Simulated scan of single mutants.
Amino acid sequence: MAHPSMAHAGATLTIDLAAIRDNHRQLKEIAGGAVCAAVIKADAYGLGASRVAPALEDAGCDTFFVAHIGEAIALRPHLNPTTRVIVLHGPPPGTGPDFVAHDIRPVLSSREQIQAWSRLATRLGRPLDAMLQVDTGMSRLGLAPDDVIGLADQPGMLDGIRVCGVMSHLACADDPQHPANAEQHSRFVEALRLLPPAPACLSASSGIFLGADFHFDMVRPGAALYGIAPVPGRANPMSPVVRLQARIIQTRTVPAGAAVGYGYTHRTTSPRRIATVSVGYADGYLRALSGTGCAHIGDVRLPVIGRVSMDTITLDASDVDEHHLQPGASVELIGPKTSVDDVARSAGTIGYEILTSIGNRYHRVYAH
Rank of each mutant, 00 (worst) to 15 (best):
A246V: 00
P106I: 03
V85N: 02
V66A: 06
A42T: 01
Y285E: 12
R272L: 10
R234M: 14
L108G: 00
I350A: 14
A19R: 01
A180Q: 10
H215G: 00
N80C: 13
I86T: 12
V66H: 07
S330A: 13
R267G: 10
C164R: 09
L124F: 06
V163T: 05
C36K: 02
A235S: 13
E112K: 14
M6H: 14
M6T: 12
P303N: 07
A182C: 07
P255Y: 10
R287A: 12
Q115T: 14
R25D: 11
Q115I: 12
R220I: 00
M157P: 06
P232N: 03
L108K: 01
G33P: 00
D135G: 08
A198K: 00
R51T: 06
T312V: 12
L170I: 03
P81D: 08
G348S: 10
G142V: 01
L194D: 01
D129V: 09
A182F: 15
I313V: 15
N236V: 05
G48E: 02
Y226R: 01
G207N: 04
A329P: 00
G335N: 00
R364S: 11
H102E: 11
T292H: 13
G306C: 13
G48C: 04
A198V: 06
R119C: 11
R220H: 04
L17M: 02
A198G: 06
H89E: 08
T349R: 00
R301E: 13
V219S: 02
A246G: 04
R243F: 06
G10A: 04
H102L: 01
I334P: 07
A59K: 09
P91C: 07
D153C: 04
